[in-house]
Amino acid sequence: MIEIRNLSLWYRRGHKVVDDVSTVFPNGRTIVICGPSGSGKSSFLRCINGLERFQEGEVLIDGKSLRARETDIHQVRARIGMVFQHFELYPHMTVLDNITLAPRKVLKQSAKDAVDRAMQLLTRVGIPENAAKFPGELSGGQQQRVAIARSLAMEPQAMLFDEPTSALDPEMIKEVLEVMIDLAGRGMTMVVVTHEMGFAREVADEVIFMDHGRFLERKSSTDFFERPDHPRTREFLSRILR
């Protein structure tokens, strides 16, 4: 379980990117965070695995505070996967090396175990034939599926998605969403920042609307789309759903 208490983050004093957010992400749920760009969604997500150094508040993973002296942030990150808007595959390594690097170096898996697991995951995301290729030889959709496989190879307890389909051509969005739907179906805890309202409606258990660094509304996905309370949410939805 991921618990956030009074989290605030700013880059300049006086302008809070994340403003006093408290929330809980229970295990096994898929939660979508949406909102206008610049609302602090990505920054918030990056606080959860300590990629962003927040100034106030606490992030607790299974009750352990990210900022506590005895917490090893690297061990926490090893158990929380993250998928980025621009994939961020390592361009100088093959697909297989991309996936096996962290399992070998962090989890100390043998090369053979890591490769076996990587091939399983590549099969699961539907591109086992690309194992020996370099990221530059793949389409955007394929690269993002490799990036998901790379995160899954660490056997994470939760996955963070930072606009995973925003950089993709429309015809490739579906193949990535299908992998995410499969993952949600397997009970993975997922926090997804996205503009894909179809995904939010069909797959998410809950949807959060974020604006100016605050969570303005959090509802089950049906209620979020059928009965939004906040006027800003209604305005946002009317603009994005047309």
Binding site: H74, L89, S151, M154
Partner: peptide
């Protein structure tokens, strides 16, 4: 090297 590469490495648990 793009900053995202560092984030990607860290997010996998690398030191």
């Amino acid at each position: 090297v793009p900053k995202g590469q560092v984030a990607a490495g860290y997010s996998c648990g690398l030191r």
